[in-house]
Structures are given as structure tokens and as C-alpha cells.
């Protein structure tokens, strides 16, 4: 755990209360992100990666959700202990790039309008009155507009003044995603949370968008979290990756090493499931994602694991440090812990 962290999640456990019972969604999660670093959270549907992101962003509805233990340290402050007002203040420093550019922009406003609203709101420090006053002051609006045009050009949008006048429906998916990136950069955030922003994009557009994102992380000294189910994308843009399964981190480390030499049986299974350009054989992982109402005793992956041992049925594994910066939550590595 470095002192340089922008965000540190310690031993986080989250429960969801539904009609059918209590779902134990996140279990003992640990992760850490430093500035200028892009960290990936990779996993399949339902592994809890979106829940984690929403919790960090502060947009997880808390009555059904309940944080049972753990802390989320942002610049040293535990977000979970903050008052509602302070939490809102912190939100200004955390930016969010949502998943689907098609539905994330309000279609009834022009791009300029959307950006101006966001910029002026940011400058109003949470006061509605101040916001309305600024929004209708010529000088403030002019400054905000200049800032908006600058932001758009920084995300490689051609002819930004014209784009300001356009409606989202007139823009392509790639452009819309870049607009969302520009919105995320307002006010110089410290942390960026990107929730699969390129899933809906074509592969060639995705490449360009990822390149742009990487640039911005560097330029703005941002700490970034990239949520994805696509391991190839993680390899492309994430320095380090956390692989999640059923609400726990099963393995973490530098992305390339993790994918070339996976340690945890789930990671290995996942990598093996994907058809490769080398045409090597591929096979899936047997079994089904677990039932969050009644998770199995011990390691959550053990029912599907081909290398399970007796101990796996009883206790879940802590994170063992296998190499200098690689951690695995698996009993197979208990001796290698160094």
C-alpha cells in the first residue's frame, strides 16, 4: 500500500437487501490507485465491479445497499464516514465517464448547453442561487464557453465551436464519448472512474478513444479506474488490473504480466476462454455464477475450480503476495507468500 495513493479501498464488504433476502455482493475488497495510473477492474457480469464504482462515486442507493465493513480513503479521508454535505463536496473531485454514449447525453440540449451547465455548476460550489446568477451573467457565460471550447479541443473534437451548437443525436458514438470525456475533465478532478466507456463503440473507434484517455491521464495527473469485461482493453490501457469474481478480488498485478502468466485459476480460466489469434485451443469455465443469496462456504470460486483443495471449501483465501507486485487470493499460493 503506497503512501502516494489517490484512492484506497480497504476490506470493503457490501450487502444488498432485497425482497428475496440479503445478497452479499462485495466481500473483503482491497484496491488502490495512484495519480497518473490507470487501474483496471476486470470481471464478468455480476461480479460487483459496477457496484464498487458506484460506491466510490457515491451514487449507490444506500437503503437497499449497506456497507457492512471497510473504508474508502480518498486523499486520506474515509468517504464512508463523511456527512452528506461533505460527500457532495468530494464528488466534485471525482469524475465519471459512463458506459453508453448513446443514452448518457440529454438529447434535448445542445452540447454547448450541457457543458456550460456543468461548468457553471462546478463553479457555484453547490449553491443553486449562485448557479442561476452566474448562468445568466454575460461575462461568466463567456468565460465558461471559452473553457468549454478548450475542453472539446483537448479531446480532439474538430471545429469545437460548431459542435457546441449541435445536439447529441447529430454526433457519432465516438464523438459523443469524447464529449463525455470532456465533461469528466471539468474542474480538474483527481480521480476518474470510467465504466466500460468503449463497450458500445466499434473497435477502430475504441482504439482512438483509449489512446485519448491514456493521454489525458498523463496530462492531467489523474488517477484512473477503468471498469471492463474485455481483457484486451485492460491490457491496452491499464497499468495494473484487479480481476474480480463474485464480489472479491481474486488476483491483481501489472496487466501484461497478469494476462501472460495468470496465477489464479479463475483468471487462467478466463484467459483460456477467449479465442485467440494464435488459434490455440479455448475452453470455457464449467459451472455458473454463484447465487449471492447463498454463497458457498470458503472460497467463492471453489465449486468451479479444477484445482480446489479441501481447505478451499472451508475458508476463503487471503491475498498472498506471490511476486513483487502481484497478489493472488488463492490457497494454492499460501507457501509462496513473500
Amino acid at each position: 500500500m503506497s503512501l502516494n495513493s489517490q484512492l484506497e479501498v480497504r476490506n470493503l464488504s457490501v450487502h444488498f437487501h432485497t425482497i428475496d433476502g440479503t445478497l452479499r455482493v462485495i466481500q473483503g475488497l482491497n484496491l488502490q490507485v495512484s495519480p497518473k495510473e490507470m487501474v483496471g477492474i476486470a470481471g464478468e457480469t455480476g461480479c460487483g465491479k459496477s457496484v464498487t464504482a458506484k460506491l466510490v462515486l457515491g451514487i449507490l442507493p444506500m437503503p437497499p445497499a449497506q456497507v457492512v465493513s471497510g473504508s474508502i480513503l480518498f486523499s486520506g479521508t474515509d468517504l464512508l464516514t463523511l456527512s452528506a454535505k461533505d460527500r457532495e463536496g468530494v464528488k466534485q473531485q471525482i469524475a465519471y465517464i459512463p458506459q453508453d454514449p448513446m443514452t448518457s447525453l440529454n438529447p434535448t440540449f445542445t452540447i454547448g448547453s450541457l457543458l456550460l451547465d456543468a461548468i457553471v455548476w462546478r463553479q457555484s460550489g453547490g449553491s443553486l442561487i449562485r448557479y442561476f446568477r452566474k448562468r445568466h451573467t454575460g461575462r461568466e457565460v463567456r468565460n465558461a464557453r471559452e473553457y468549454a471550447v478548450d475542453l472539446l479541443s483537448r479531446v480532439d473534437i474538430p471545429a469545437p465551436e460548431q459542435v457546441m451548437r449541435r445536439y447529441p443525436i447529430e454526433l457519432s458514438g465516438g464523438m459523443r464519448q469524447r464529449v463525455l470525456m470532456a465533461t469528466a475533465l471539468i474542474g480538474h478532478p483527481k480521480l476518474l472512474v470510467a465504466d466500460e466507456p468503449t463497450t458500445a463503440l466499434d473497435v477502430t473507434i475504441q482504439k482512438r478513444t483509449l489512446g485519448l484517455l491514456q493521454e489525458k491521464i498523463e496530462e492531467e495527473h489523474l488517477a484512473g479506474i477503468y471498469i471492463t469485461h474485455d481483457l484486451g482493453v485492460a491490457r491496452n490501457i491499464c497499468h495494473r488490473t484487479y480481476v474480480m469474481y463474485a464480489g472479491t478480488v481474486v488476483e491483481s498485478g501489472p496487466t501484461k504480466a497478469l494476462l501472460d502468466r495468470p496465477f489464479h485459476p479463475y483468471t487462467a480460466g478466463l484467459v483460456r476462454s477467449i479465442p485467440k489469434l494464435t488459434r490455440e485451443p479455448y475452453e470455457g469455465i464449467p459451472g455458473q455464477v454463484l447465487d449471492y443469496l447463498n454463497p458457498p462456504e470458503g472460497c467463492r470460486f471453489h465449486p468451479r475450480c479444477s484445482r480446489r483443495m479441501a481447505v478451499c471449501r472451508q475458508t476463503s483465501a487471503p491475498e498472498y503476495r506471490v511476486e513483487k507486485d502481484r497478489w493472488v487470493a488463492c490457497h494454492l499460493f499460501s507457501e509462496k507468500d513473500g
Partner: peptide, 25 residues
């Protein structure tokens, strides 16, 4: 298109053309 494939392993990288990022709309 081939160069934009998000490959998973280093071995796969041999099988695609080098970096071509498309600009323009």
C-alpha cells in the same frame, strides 16, 4: 481493423499488423 483488435496475450500481437489508428469521421 486487424490492428485495432484488443489482444490479450503477447503471443497474439505477432498476428496483427502494427498500430494503425484511424482519424477522420
Amino acid at each position: 481493423l486487424l490492428s485495432a483488435i484488443p489482444v490479450i496475450t503477447e503471443a497474439e500481437r505477432q498476428h496483427i499488423p502494427e498500430e494503425i489508428t484511424l482519424d477522420g469521421e
